[in-house]
């Protein structure tokens, strides 16, 4: 039978010390919306829970449109959805957090938890990738800052990278001028936790051209990622139908869907391309270029 200890540190170093002392069977407990389910199913070996919700620094948020923002890992989805600064400067993040259907989940689930679970269908992670988020990690090797996209990719291939590691903050870059981000998702029903397939497109817009383009497709490939070749095509020149078509073709080649019970590979691909076009269209509208 599982039996584990519980600690509630008030300071980050205490939490790190506890994690490192305990080794692989220590788990970070934030909102618990995923971990508590795993504990009930007794599928993961656990000897210690480190509850990080009472470390003030991890629950701090600083939004600065010029120098960049820093969001504590234990901010809940509800807090982010309701935060005026997030709504103003990172509206897609606020929107994605608000779109998680159950209020009870939004009140508990944290941004850090969403990242560590790393669902390939997460619209919240897609939004973070649009804002080129980075994460601050604390582990045996000390503190390091890594791009979120790298972190997601690495954890996907090796879950054990999360052991003994604490994600303390999410860093978002300064706000670019004339920058927008749009997400379009396909839901089986309005209150679905994650869309089956989604497309996020972000860019800034100067003199008819996209710059800083970011393209993310959720739910199709094994983990969330940016499609930089597609982004390149979008930024090469005026975004006409021909260029958009080339971008879509490029995107199609980068997608490797497999059949799931929710959607066939064929449908996933068709919807990803459709939603990509919808997102580009939405972004143009948002940035005031309806052409």
């Amino acid at each position: 039978m599982l039996s584990y200890h519980y600690v509630r540190p008030r300071l980050l170093p205490e939490a790190l010390a506890a994690l490192q002392r305990e080794g692989a069977e220590a788990r970070v407990l934030a909102g618990g919306t995923t971990l508590v389910r795993q504990l009930k199913q007794q599928r993961v070996p656990v000897s210690l829970l480190v509850d990080i919700k009472h470390i003030p620094d991890l629950h701090s948020i600083r939004i600065d449109s010029r120098s960049g923002s820093r969001i504590g890992t234990t901010l809940t989805l509800e807090e982010l959805a309701a935060h005026a600064g997030v709504q103003k400067y990172y509206p897609l993040l606020a929107e994605a957090c608000a779109a998680v259907p159950a209020w009870q989940v939004r009140n508990r689930a944290t941004l850090g938890g969403e990242i560590c679970v790393g669902s390939r269908r997460s619209a919240i992670l897609a939004a973070l990738l649009c804002y080129e988020a980075a994460v601050t990690l604390h582990g045996a090797a000390g503190e390091q800052v890594r791009p979120l996209s790298d972190f997601i990719r690495d954890v996907y291939s090796d879950k054990s990278l999360l052991h003994g590691v604490l994600l303390s903050h999410i860093l978002l870059g300064p706000r670019l001028r004339r920058f927008g981000a749009v997400f379009r998702g396909l839901y089986q029903y309005p209150g679905q936790r994650h869309p089956v397939v989604g497309a996020a497109v972000a860019a800034s817009y100067y003199e008819g051209n996209f710059q800083h383009a970011r393209v993310i497709i959720s739910g199709v490939n094994p983990h969330l990622q940016r499609y930089t070749d597609v982004e390149q095509i979008l930024m090469e020149g005026t975004l006409d139908e021909d260029r958009l078509q080339r971008a879509a073709v490029e995107l199609g080649q980068a997608l490797h869907p497999v059949d799931t019970t929710q959607a066939s590979a064929e449908y996933q691909r068709a919807m990803a391309l459709h939603l990509f076009r919808q997102a580009v269209q939405g972004l143009r509208t948002q940035l005031g270029n309806s052409k």
Partner: peptide, 12 residues
């Protein structure tokens, strides 16, 4: 705040 009591540990 409304929460699912089945997903909150008592120690928390």
């Amino acid at each position: 705040a409304p929460v699912y009591a089945c997903m909150v540990l008592a120690v928390e």
